[in-house]
């Protein structure tokens, strides 16, 4: 909604952020994003986040790689029907090594591609609704509400121990905060 307000609750402790997520879940406010300086299982549980399915990309990459490596070796060997070292032209065991290395290589490519695709990285609009303190030591809960309920949302976050900051839609980071350590000693 165009007149929605974005409020960020910043927490020094994981507990505060987890409690805030719980409280917001029980309210009618919407959680937009949750930030943390480290991966947090407790936040993931509170948000009821399902396991990532990035592994599917990894698996597909691996399967593709196995056949690509194996077929490349077979194709190149079959260009000349020349018996080398007494081995058959299409030697399955040596080609298995090529297949194995390609499996790993393409599984990793799939892994990376899946990650970039699912997280929408790289992105240029990362500054939107972001506070630079979040990469250091703060946990952040970004929630939205209609303009007339802004105070209510701020009060809810403050009750959980948050330092609340209003995030305007196109808030540039330069204006959004002073140097992180100065603002919050």
């Amino acid at each position: 909604m165009a007149d929605d307000r974005y409020l960020m609750g910043l927490f020094l402790e994981e507990n505060g952020a987890v409690d805030a997520v719980g409280a917001l879940g029980e309210s009618s406010f919407r959680i937009e994003k949750v930030f943390s300086p480290v991966p947090s299982h407790r936040l993931a549980e509170a948000l009821k986040i399902k396991k990532s399915w990035v592994g599917l990309f990894t698996l597909l990459g691996g399967v593709f790689g196995f056949f690509a490596g194996f077929l490349l070796a077979i194709f190149t060997a079959s260009r000349w029907d020349l018996i080398v070292s007494g081995k058959p032209v299409v030697s399955l065991i040596p080609f298995l090594i090529v297949g194995f290395e390609f499996t790993i290589l393409f599984a990793v490519f799939g892994n990376i591609m899946g990650f970039l695709f699912l997280t929408d990285l790289p992105r240029s609009d990362w500054r939107r609704h972001y506070d630079e303190r979040l990469s250091g030591r703060y946990y952040g809960v970004l929630a939205t509400c209609p303009a007339d309920r802004e105070q209510e949302l701020a009060a809810l976050l403050e009750r959980q121990g948050a330092d609340v900051r209003r995030m305007d839609r196109d808030d540039p980071p330069e204006r959004a905060a002073a140097r992180p350590e100065q603002a919050h000693p």
Binding site: F35, L43, S52, V54, N111, G114, T119, W126, L134
Partner: peptide
């Protein structure tokens, strides 16, 4: 453009594990 939002960590933790496993 990394921001540490939960969606990023969710996939990051997983790919890091797969990286290690591979």
């Amino acid at each position: 453009g990394w921001t540490g939002e939960h969606e990023q960590w969710r996939h990051y933790v997983r790919i890091y594990l797969f990286f290690a496993a591979l």
